[in-house]
Amino acid sequence: MSSQQEIHFDKIISRYRSDPYDYVDMCAIHTGKVRFLVEENSEVDGVSGEWKHLPGTPLYEINRERNPKIVTSQTNGTVSTIHHELDDNFVEAGEKLLTIRHPLKKKEIIESILQDVLYIFEAPERARYFFAMDIQSRIDQKGVRSVFIKPGDEIITMSLMKRDTPVYYTGEPGIIHSVYFKPGDSVDMGVPLIGVCAEDKLPVVQKVITRVKAEWE
């Protein structure tokens, strides 16, 4: 089966048309007693500020050993569900507390669809990231979508407290198609850094972008 046949455009696009939202689950960051600070249907804001330093809307407080911590929203949207039964109760780390319904923009929809096609390479830890010197110079010379990488290549440097760690690519060989960070950005663990596209899939990827751009207003 060819790559093009694997993508059912109409089905995917109609899914996003009928429900153009992302549902972001907020889970307990650690054990503790939880107290909700928002109601169902509350509008919430994500982080803001030029340096993304202004926290979003406070969602809940979690208190462990008299050490209360306010957890704020990372994204904008509406609180769609809250597990009220957990309010004022002790929860385990990772327990689902509430869900935020985030309205997707056209660009986010494209990226969301592309993530089914691309190999997504995620941040191994919360740190600042920049491209390895060689990759950066190839990007500067030819543009990002001309840079071919393969497993074992040193592609990115992870920097934490002025300690630099080379990050080696572990996915399938291909072209760097999407870059989800700006060099020097602070990126949370598990957040996509780059999306890599096998060369034979490039036409499919281009088709996705063109189709969504044309059909989505």
């Binding site: 500020g49 340096w51 330093h53 202004l54 919360r126 740190a127 600042r128 920097s159 934490l160 407290m161 002025k162 020097g184 602070s186």
Partner: peptide, 20 residues
């Protein structure tokens, strides 16, 4: 944990764990 806490001109606070 070692981050540098700074106050920006608008009075908001920012903590950096990388950079210089």
């Amino acid at each position: 944990c070692g981050g540098l806490v700074m106050e920006l001109a608008d009075g908001s606070e920012i903590t950096e764990t990388g950079g210089e």
